[in-house]
Simulated assay, not measured.
Amino acid sequence: MERRRIAVAGASGLIGSALARSLTADGHEVVRLVRRAPRGPLELRWDPEKGQVDAAGLAGCDAVVNVAGAGVGDRRWSEAYKKRIHDSRVHGTAALAKAVASLDEPPRVFVNGSAMGFYGETGDRVVDESAPPGTGFLPELCVEWEAAAGAAQEAGVRTAFTRTGLVVARGGGAWGKLFPLFTAGLGGRMGDGRQYWSYIALHDEVAAIRHLLDRDDLSGPFNLTAPEPLTNREITAAMGRVLHRPTLFAVPAPVLRTVLGEMAGDVLGSARVVPKRLLESGFTFAFPGIEDAVRAA
């Protein structure tokens, strides 16, 4: 197996840390981008919100993966926090893309994060990568986020975007908040439960990113979601079955809006997103069903 040097921005987050572990376990050299002073040759200083990165430190990297960004579900969306969500993604991506483009020998591939939020509210409509962006904060953010990688694309670097769904994992993200509730027997549907949730097991998320790294013929947007999205009601029932807990509690929509503010639109909204291009490329999901994904977590 060819040993590769891969830079990972966001290596302390849910997806980035799992990706870094997977790559390291297979013998690859992972350069982690950090906001503090580097503690060794495999760390590189950057400040995504200010758009600053040490370009020289990326020299010799075969690939750059950017999954950095302030957590969308970490807190209520004040105007200040929305700015942080935006700047950490858009400015960070632009800085990395420019750094990549400036190198005499740029990396072969740049895999940049995005989100299924690109499509906004889809209702019962199934959407793949050919669908246009939706409207609102997250779709507009995703459009700008992907556009920020332009410098790398213009420099001829193969660039892929990961429009990731809700990652099923205990360690963070939406499911990191759901597991304790369901384990305590307090889980239940949200709103009327008819909204579609497009999910992906953390194992499959990492495997899909590695698939994009390895395949020289893949570029552009890829939906990183399980093949068959389910409704919140169906997912709630599956969580109850796997964890052997009742799912009697339902959180009414007005309560979610009071507690979550603007972010409640994502919880109550419906996104029926399918991974058409990923499947067409030959990728195989290890945990395509929700019960398997929950057990894996």
Rank of each mutant, 00 (worst) to 15 (best):
M1N: 13
A11F: 08
G16W: 02
A18I: 03
A20C: 14
R21Y: 08
A25V: 04
D26G: 14
H28Q: 07
V30S: 05
R35D: 07
A37K: 12
P38E: 10
P41W: 07
L42R: 14
L44S: 08
W46Y: 09
E49C: 09
G51N: 11
A56P: 05
L58M: 11
G60C: 08
V65E: 01
V65M: 02
A70V: 15
R75H: 03
K83I: 00
K83H: 03
K83P: 00
I85K: 08
D87V: 05
S88G: 05
G92F: 08
G92Y: 06
L96H: 02
L96M: 08
A97G: 12
A97T: 11
A99W: 02
A99F: 06
V100Y: 01
S102M: 05
S102H: 03
D104I: 00
P107S: 08
R108W: 05
R108P: 01
S114L: 03
M116T: 13
M116K: 00
F118W: 11
Y119Q: 08
G120V: 12
E121D: 15
T122S: 10
E129Q: 03
P133L: 04
G136R: 04
P139S: 03
W145G: 00
E146Y: 06
A148T: 03
A149V: 14
G150K: 13
A152T: 11
T162D: 10
R163G: 13
R163W: 11
R170G: 12
R170Q: 12
A174Q: 08
W175M: 13
K177F: 06
K177E: 11
A184E: 07
R189G: 12
R194Q: 13
D204T: 04
V206M: 09
A208W: 00
R210Y: 05
R210M: 12
G220R: 12
F222V: 10
T225H: 07
I235D: 03
I235A: 06
I235C: 12
A237L: 11
G240I: 04
V242N: 01
R245D: 02
L248E: 01
P252R: 11
A253Y: 02
V255T: 10
V255L: 15
G261V: 07
G261F: 08
D266S: 10
S270T: 15
S270W: 11
A271N: 04
R277Q: 13
L278G: 10
L279Q: 10
E280C: 08
T284N: 00
T284C: 02
F287E: 01
A297M: 11
